[in-house]
């Protein structure tokens, strides 16, 4: 899988995880969307972490999410976790 395809794949999974975790079925969500603008609170973030774990197999704890402000921040975080674990999605 190419790096771009892999990136898009992860980004799509992250967006779907946000959609499902934060119960935003009909909301437009892009890479630039901030979590704040989507109205995501700490409980939503816990639900999103669960969805990501279910889809991508990474456990995200609250302390991992410190500087995560946008959808692309979250995608980047997943990539860095993948790189650290040697996994290739």
């Amino acid at each position: 899988m190419s790096a771009v395809a892999s990136h898009n794949n992860v980004e799509n999974e992250v967006i779907e995880a946000i959609r499902k975790g934060a119960l935003l079925e009909n909301k437009t969500i892009s890479a630039d969307s901030t979590l704040e603008s989507l109205g995501i609170d700490s409980l939503d973030m816990t639900n999103i972490s669960f969805e990501i774990e279910d889809r991508l197999g990474f456990v995200l704890n609250p302390e991992d999410l410190g500087d995560t402000k946008t959808v692309s921040d979250l995608t980047a975080l997943i990539h860095s976790r993948q790189a650290a674990s040697g996994s290739n999605l």
Binding site: T46, F50, E53, D54
Partner: peptide, 8 residues
Amino acid sequence: DKKNLHPM
């Protein structure tokens, strides 16, 4: 056998 239960 999935041990991660939903946060809600």
